[in-house]
Design a protein around this nucleic acid. Structure first.
Lengths: 287, 287
DNA sequence: TTCCCCGATACCGCGCGGGTATCGTTGCTG
DNA sequence: CAGCAACGATACCCGCGCGGTATCGGGGAA
């Protein structure tokens, strides 16, 4: 609230202040009116050319700067008193995409004093790492063993088959798994097959032989080098020479955030919060 | 938020702090957890015997007290810079009831520097007073001429007929206007009859003769002294010897807050806010 | 006089801050 | 040691408020 006022007072312009605050003008106008009602006096003189400070507004601007600065210092002092803090994030190499970058930036901005460690993981790792305490929170893709964990779906992507550009099926705009029958398949790392089998139900996909893939990139390479079937959530960028065709009868792939169910600490709670917000609002902004 | 933390930290007990803050324990617990997530560290050690401050919590308690004190001082300074302020409230003598007392207290608490003037009014006065600028905001009863005004209904009361205890109809638990046919009636002050006539539609109630009443109290006295029909919103306390019987075919009487439609000042906005909250939450609390 | 710019308003949807009901744990006690 | 009481946590619900988009009114400038 006070930040809003400071922005408007410094810009002397509601529109520019809204831009600075990364919001739109109407709610900002309303917020300032509410602040005025709360304090019981007019803070700004509105005019078609902008806004000017009243005497009361001038006083408040000074005080608000002081208060906000002091509040920031308080955050630092409290963090210092709490001692060093560490958060270990487990992540599948490319599962988060560019929103993951925004998440990292947002979280660092909010908790500058927290040392964030990243642990790359394969498909089996996130859940075991969480249970073992090696990882505090994980960004990964469903399905995996969730016993004892709390999860939240961040986004859901349709899955496509990855084909070489010269593949006879490459021109189709939609495929079914049956179209890929007989082609060589890949395997997931040890320990994940049962989960995937359950997830896919009767779909005859997990095989006893074939190359083991841990990430989408390995899966793509496998298409190029081993000629296996490739699967990837749509929207990922593909190497030259590969094409993704939507698979009509594949369940969507879910990007999931997961953490240990029992008593997550403040850092984990905050991380989940920021992550949820990042994917909720951020996806639209990125589009 | 900070007030919540200070309360818990001082009480070292969530339940007692919730009482002090006039709220319940669960949302308070949640708010503290959010604060912890926001700051990225644990502030309180919970135990079955209460809550103890962590080092970070100790630091925050001190800082929070300073910040809150400074914020209070800021309110005062801003109000002083704004100069003296006056709000004139127009009210029908007894229309607000005891919730009006709570409203006055709440508003005074929020704006100690504002001089609130009260202007008693009769049924015609609030709307003319508002338009003339004699009154900033009015608590009155519908209907009245609302052209150029903004109104909000605060509560709605069924209307009853007031009878002397020895009246033949006094034993009934419900009446219709026809039951009162032929009885002497009262008049409203000059200028209100057209509005009331429109409000009541075909109901033959406004008469050319009879005593003029401006408030419910006068209407009651009229019953005692002139033997006229009396009308009153149910729930008001009645003098000895009078009884109110619900009138089935009378529209409910609405307690209304009204103000000048064009650009209400901060004080009026705040008043409307506080009044709305008072009647929304306060009525249940008073029951 | 026309256009344009700025702030205000109207309206909508979702998340959050309130609420109630209930649980798990723990320390006390008979 | 078993039962209980107390405390904080959780689950769930609801209404308000804060965000958004679309649009308006009203002064200045050309």
């Amino acid at each position: 609230m006070l930040r809003y006022f400071v922005a408007v007072a410094e810009e002397r312009h509601f529109g520019r202040a809204a831009v600075r605050l990364q919001m739109t003008q109407p709610p900002l106008s309303r917020a300032i009116r509410q602040l005025e009602a709360d304090l019981g006096c007019v803070l700004l003189d509105r005019s078609p050319t902008g806004a000017a400070l009243t005497p009361a507004g001038t006083v408040l601007l000074d005080e608000a700067r002081t208060l906000l600065a002091r509040a920031d210092r308080t955050r630092v002092k409290v963090a210092a008193a709490a001692g060093s803090a560490t958060l270990t994030v487990g992540t599948l190499a490319d599962s988060a995409g560019q929103a993951g970058t925004r998440l990292a930036a947002a979280y660092r901005a909010r908790h500058p004093h927290v040392e964030v460690r990243v642990r790359e993981a394969d498909l089996t790792d996130p859940s075991t790492g969480l249970r073992a305490g090696l990882v505090d929170v994980a960004l990964t893709r469903a399905p995996f063993d969730t016993t004892g964990l709390t999860t939240r779906v961040l986004r859901s992507d349709a899955v496509g088959a990855v084909l070489r550009a010269d593949d006879p099926l490459a021109g189709r705009d939609s495929l079914r798994l049956d179209d890929l029958a007989g082609r060589p398949w890949f395997r997931f790392p040890d320990g994940t097959d049962p989960v995937w089998a359950a997830f896919w139900g009767g779909r005859h996909t997990a095989r006893r032989s074939g190359p083991v893939v841990r990430t989408a990139q390995e899966c793509l390479q496998s298409v190029l080098w081993s000629g296996t079937v490739g699967l990837i959530p749509l929207g990922h960028s593909l190497p030259e020479g590969l094409i993704a065709v939507p698979l009509a009868d594949m369940p969507p792939s879910q990007l999931v955030i997961a953490w240990n169910g029992s008593g997550p600490g403040p850092l984990v709670r905050s991380f989940v919060r920021v992550a949820t917000a990042t994917w909720r609002h951020g996806e639209a902004a990125a589009a």
